[in-house]
Amino acid sequence: MAAVTPLLSTRGLSKSFGGLRAVHAVDFDLPEGQIRALIGPNGAGKTTFVSLLCGRITADEGNVHFAGRDVTALPAHRRIQAGMAYTFQITSVFPRLSLHENIALAARRRLGHDREGVRAAVGHALDMVGLAGRANQLAGDLSYGHQRLVEIAMGLAQAPRLLILDEPTQGLSDSEISEFNALIRSIASETTVLLIEHNMQVVMELAEFITVLNFGEVLAEGEPEAIRRNPAVQEAYLGTAHA
């Protein structure tokens, strides 16, 4: 594996807000095709870290390489164009637009004026999240759980090389969560997935590899079983309020 260049890697990535070191000197490698979970106690810097990856905030130090090039200096939209897709932790859809248009916006950036192609991509993405019958509803009229699925469908419709999901199962019911797990497994052959997740069941079921952040630094990395048994990880979780 060492010979293969990872899809995404960071070296010495750091970000402070005021005096607070939100992310500090993180070295991170994500090989192509993996489902990676990023976990850690509340305030460990997970969301800050992925925001640095996709360019929503700029790093103080360090660099981000994606798909073979240094993207550290690129603005967010250029990184997305390079093949990242990001779903928000707090649902962020276009509430006054139809589901179809929400997804079409995601697909159109890559497909442009190809109307048929966009229509097919929208149908496919809605199918995958099980919202096919609702294409003409306004996104704002959906339940919270369904809006999260719309968000994921928007990620899928971009056909990204890397899909970053920030707490995707928050607010989903148990049955929706198992559908979500199946969905992620089904796309894993085409897409690398980076998953921030609090729900340990989802993490253990999906992740092939886990990175644990604590106080903005990498505390441990390894396969799910190794992480589960790691005493430092247990302490980090037990030492704070369990999420």
Binding site: C54, R56, A76, H77, R78, I80, Q81, Y86, F88, S92, V93, F94, P95, R96, L97, E101, A104, L105, A106, R108, R109, G112, H113, M154, Q158
Partner: peptide, 24 residues
């Protein structure tokens, strides 16, 4: 047209539009 659709998207949710890879 796609251009106008993106304008409407910006009106509705600028940050989301940017994070779909559009140059807002």
């Amino acid at each position: 047209a796609p251009f106008g659709r993106v304008l409407i998207a910006i009106r509705e949710n600028e940050e989301r539009t940017r994070m779909l890879g559009y140059d807002v």
